[in-house]
Design a binder for these strands. Structure first.
Lengths: 210, 210
DNA sequence: ATTTTATTTAACAAATTTGTTAATGCAAAG
DNA sequence: CTTTGCATTAACAAATTTGTTAAATAAAAT
């Protein structure tokens, strides 16, 4: 493929990513994408045929990125469990912080059109099930050694992801409540990260109570 | 206002709620709303002028409902802190379970168009700040009595809401990972509720460790 | 009963949006 | 140099979607 074409094709994809990520499929306009990419809107159809096809390219890429982020965040075997979890939470949190509109995009488009998601189910399993099995084994071993309470790996991972992702989704609603942190996005999210680490750390503590 | 008109107006609002909640503002079609309500689409404009105005009615109502749900869930003073939290988590979880597409709707529409939200900032503060202050006082007292670790009320509440809401947002992505729970939505969410209670309970435990 | 007001319908219109197409330019291969 | 194929543009078209309007109908008031 010629160089200048590749550039335009990529320019369109870049513009489409911004447009779809911020406005969703229904809110996105192919003319806006073309304008942002600096091409006539006929070029979009020349390269990608339809709006739907451009969208699929972006959605696939983002789904892959999201799955990969969880995998790379928590996939550090060889470390002690508590350290592995600490690093996993931090890495995952930082990833979400660097891609703050990714979760909303995926939640929306996947939830709104499950048929689009069908193709990904298998892939999600392939990626996540080994990680979950590995994590479960470590959790069981730690519990057997009396270092931690028993825990279900999926539930624990969902705890982490919920705590890491949701504050980014809800930030506009939270911001008026922040008091001295209001307006200071960075400081608020630093505090959230610490809180999430603490919550998960305590979740695993062995406690005789109750 | 005559009875039959009130009925049609209400039928339109009911249909609009379903349409907007499932498809969002951009994806919603006024003709679909009219059809679902059993009226010609001109009636929509007769009663509400514009699509935007119908949407605002729905959005306002849902924002109010959401704020109210948090308030009523956790607003039971007079109980011991741990019991108040337990009831709060359960009530809030049950509310989300009964309105599973509400969070996605609000996250979307509010995040996508912050200008729409401006009017609500003040109201959110009025509703939430007293609750937070009250909860903070109880947390401080419990900590002073040595019954719990110190905690920030807003952070704790955000823990709860994150844990309660996110699994509903992410369910389509989670479902392929559920193993023996796959397909059994009810059982999965029962387990989530128990997990969330446990996470928050442990979050407050006084621990000498670290 | 008549007038007045509110409700409803069908037809229309304007704007937007996605997608097509035919003509043109341009670069490389032969 | 010419031919071939890809890239690009401008103009167009079809479909959709929101909103309007004038006329018809029903209801309420006098």
């Amino acid at each position: 493929m010629p160089e200048h074409a590749r550039n335009k094709e990529q320019a369109i994809l870049d513009a489409a990513e911004r447009e779809f990520l911020t406005k969703g499929f229904d809110g996105a306009r192919t003319t806006s994408i073309a304008q942002a990419a600096g091409v006539t809107h006929a070029m979009l159809h020349y390269y990608f045929r339809t709006k739907e096809k451009i969208f699929e390219r972006i959605l696939d890429e983002k789904m892959r990125l999201m799955g990969e982020s969880v995998l790379t965040a928590f996939g550090s075997p060889g470390l002690p469990l508590s350290e592995r979890l600490r690093q996993g939470i931090e890495n995952h949190f930082d990833f979400v912080a660097a891609n703050p509109d990714l979760p909303r995009f995926l939640v929306n488009e996947v939830f709104a059109r499950p048929e689009r998601y069908e193709a990904m189910r298998q892939r999600i399993r392939w990626i996540m099930n080994p990680l979950l099995a590995d994590l479960q084994r470590e959790l069981d071993e730690a519990a057997a050694r009396g270092e931690a309470d028993p825990a279900d790996a999926l539930m624990l991972l969902l705890d982490v992801i919920s705590l890491n992702v949701f504050p980014f989704l809800a930030y506009p609603v939270l911001e008026p409540l922040l008091g001295d942190l209001a307006g200071d996005r960075t400081r608020f999210f630093a505090q959230r990260k610490a809180e999430n680490l603490e919550v998960i750390r305590k979740r695993l503590l062995k406690t005789p109570q109750r």
